[in-house]
Write a protein that binds this DNA or RNA. Sequence first.
RNA 1: GUCCCCUUCGUCUAGAGGCCUAGGACGGCUCCCUUUCACGGAGCAGACACGAGUUCGAAUCUCGUAGGGGACGCCA
Length: 497
Amino acid sequence: MENHSNYFSEVRLRYAPSPTGYLHVGGARTALYNFLYARKHKGKFILRIEDTDQERSSMESLKMVLADMKWLGLNWDEGPNAETLEGMGSYGPYKQSERLKIYDEVAQDLLKRGLAYYCFMTDAEIDAQRQTQMADGAAHPHLESPYETMALADAQAKIKSGEKAVVRFKTRHLKKDYHLNDLIRGDVHFPSDMVGDFVLLRSDGMPVYNFCCVVDDYKMKISHVLRAEEHLSNSLRQLMIYEAMSWPTPQFGHVSLVLDDDRQKLSKRKGATSCNQFREEGYLPEALLNFVALLGWSHPEEKEILSLQEMIDSFSTDRLHSSGAVFDRVKLKWVNAQHLRAKAPVEMWGLIEPFLKANNISFPEDRPWKFQSLEVFKNYLEIVSDAVPFYKLLDDKYFEILSESAEVLGWPTSRAVVQEWQNAVKEFAGTAFTEDDFNKLQDAVKIKSQTKGKNLFMPMRVAVIGKPHGTELKILVPLMSKASLISRAQKVLDSMK
RNA sequence: GUCCCCUUCGUCUAGAGGCCUAGGACGGCUCCCUUUCACGGAGCAGACACGAGUUCGAAUCUCGUAGGGGACGCCA
């Protein structure tokens, strides 16, 4: 028996995703809380891959999850390297599929000590037994395996002869309450008859979640486990295994669930739920983390816009709370806008440019122009992809006169305004406009066309961007070329014939 | 069905027996700024699930009811 005094001498937390698709936002939140706790207490953050479900796990998914974690900036100290997938750290392997020997040893120990047994029941037999129990009105129908009492040697002989068996944990002799001192929920009690003999090892030798989770948390010296509430009832099984092995238990904290707007567990059918989708839609990783952190945790001073470092500094489990939280995409957008608008121009352009290129939008290759345009559009952007329609306005190949302009162009004075505008641009001596230049041009149009107010403004705006509402012309026009303005006005004139 | 967890404005939340006439944020509405839109600013509406108890005093403690969620797999 190992000496367990001071077993958790280091703060070690883990996030343990199963690689069955992109990282889910609920998973990102769980990962974040573990990450924050580890960083706050100068501990280690470990990424462990729970890939014992061979059916659903894939290498592709693993790479996607790792990429999402990296994108979010939730860097792990131990676990598979995001590029090479090789384990980093001294408690590996970090993929459960590579730890089969470890689980097997523990299972053998349990078998030898009579705390687990080989069970040869078929699905049909299990089903039939359940039916009978239900018919008898049993309060807690649980599996009663005839193999529970079979001598280990006999069972081993059966297996040698080619029969398949699972390893089950014995629960029927455990007649007592188990309790968990949860960091978030306080004392939680479970009656032992809540569960029946459960599977430790599948018939193909693969361990099952509740088993390998305990083995790994112990072997990897995980000191704190923050996980989703859906695992709360799993804790009983895990507690039983800890007890059977005389292993010290980590501190558990069960975080509430992230819900959809119908208060069900967040599901894909209602829109984006994976971090990757949000990335593609133009959300910032720091904004997504910030938002998701607030779903079940609050800053001590109720500050809402937080950097990762601020979250680390102010994180504590006693501000984690226990009821489910609805994922409000509208507020996420607002949080994202706050982070986005706070960016320096260079950084913001770096974010926007890929979206423009992906949408085949052309733009001048000079820095002052880029930053000037950012200054103009910044306050209109909530997510990065919002930039696309704005920059489209400036790209001649996308210029079109929108139907909402029809009314404005129908006004009796509009034709004169557009014509005078075009003339004024044509007569302009320079090639690039300043705000001041624009004001002068506008005054000229005003006088010559004998209009003012919206009769002047709106047709001019249509002549520039093809629609009567939008960004202020005096800041937009300096971003455009003389030739472009002339040809746009011409298109509008042509459309008015 | 059984067991476990949860319940403050539409949503995220603050709240640890008197500081609560319940505060903030998103969203909504009104107004201001603006010859449009957005940004920004000012304001308004909006919640302690219900019922008992404990207490001089309850959003806060206890019990019950209702509602919601989760788990009951050779998924995690």
